[in-house]
């Protein structure tokens, strides 16, 4: 989410402010609190869910074939 923020003018301003001697630490803490990546609406798009499922399935199939899926 922070990387996405940095793609905006506001994000660039926040990036500079985050290095400020006084405001930097509390700002970083606040932004960390605000990050709720799992709630992002992008996860609900069908294409995105299919993408994730495909990658996970490819990886699982490889580990099964290689005989190492132990996690």
């Amino acid at each position: 989410m922070l990387a996405r923020l940095k793609a905006t003018l506001l994000g660039k301003w926040l990036y500079r402010l985050s290095r400020h001697d006084i405001f930097g630490a509390p700002l970083r803490w606040l932004l960390d609190l605000g990050v709720a990546e799992q709630l992002d609406p992008a996860h609900w798009k069908v294409a995105n869910r299919q993408h994730n499922a495909r990658q996970a399935a490819t990886l699982a199939a490889f580990r099964t074939r290689a005989g190492g899926a132990g996690q």
Binding site: L2, A3, E37, Q55, A56, L59, F62, R63, G68, Q71
Partner: peptide, 23 residues
């Protein structure tokens, strides 16, 4: 540092490295 961005994305990449090491 921030790419993949999400915990799930980083776990996926990490699992791929585990798979490479196992294979």
């Amino acid at each position: 540092a921030i790419s993949p961005l999400t915990r799930r994305g980083r776990l996926h990449v990490l699992e791929a490295m585990v798979a490479l090491a196992e294979a």
